[in-house]
């Protein structure tokens, strides 16, 4: 989780990732940042994020992104 927060902070500072739960709906993360984030996550956690998983519900908070990573790692 800490590594994920580090990635997020590097991509988009000035956001409190512990509390914000509308990263996509609140437009903290735009499409390009999401592309960057996906690439970082795939490299760091050795998972492949399918297009179908790129929905606001999976990216609205650091906790939700972490849940997605764990789920994808289990499925692998």
């Amino acid at each position: 989780m800490e590594e994920l927060i580090e990635i997020l902070e590097e991509l988009q500072p000035d956001v409190d990732y512990e509390t914000v739960d509308d990263l996509v709906d609140g437009r903290y993360l735009d499409s390009l940042t999401i592309l960057s984030l996906i690439s970082e996550i795939e490299d760091a956690f050795d998972v492949e994020i399918p297009t179908v998983e790129i929905i606001p519900a999976n990216f609205n908070s650091a906790a939700k992104i972490w849940e997605l990573i764990e789920r994808l790692q289990e499925e692998d």
């Binding site: 940042t33 592309l35 690439s39």
Partner: peptide, 28 residues
């Protein structure tokens, strides 16, 4: 948008470009 930008060839392009151009211009 996502199926094109996250296709295998585009992902590899993003990955390479990010190393050279950084987090903003990499995925651009």
């Amino acid at each position: 948008f996502y199926p094109v930008s996250l296709s295998k060839s585009m992902k590899s392009l993003t990955s390479k470009a990010k190393k050279k151009l950084g987090n903003h211009y990499g995925p651009l």
